[in-house]
Amino acid sequence: MQKMRAETVWNSIEGGTSESVVSNVIPRLCLITDDSAPVRRIARKILTGLGFEVDEAEHGQVALDKCQVRMPNMILLDWNMPVMDGLEFLVALRHSEGGKVPTVIFCTTETDVEHIQKAIECGADDYLMKPFDRETLTATLAGVTPRA
């Protein structure tokens, strides 16, 4: 049920009416930003299964560069990464041109109130604690309203 809902929410935006055929639906791009290759692999598998087009970045700077080329609809964002961490990236993204468009979901092993509050304050739309799985990620996606 959660999967159905996540697909409905995320595929009905640009595609127009429910009658639109698959080829008319523009794939929603999700940028997985995480320095862990296993995490990117698992997230890619789940998100692809949900109908997302997926791209990957191993830290915030790479993600920022990719956003300047093509702004994703959604970003799954790790907190602790080398070069540029998740929070720095989020602040830079939200201040950049078109940077308010992507829905940003923090996805991290940080579980304390202070991290959650900081993430929300800096413009994250939701927060998913690791380890995530198909069910928890799908439920989180179903719970956020796409910004665009």
């Binding site: 862990s36 290759a37 296993p38 604690m129 995530f132």
Partner: peptide
């Protein structure tokens, strides 16, 4: 949960 989160990150 904490240990599984770390294992997910590290593989």
């Amino acid at each position: 949960r904490k240990i599984a989160g770390d294992a997910m990150n590290s593989g």
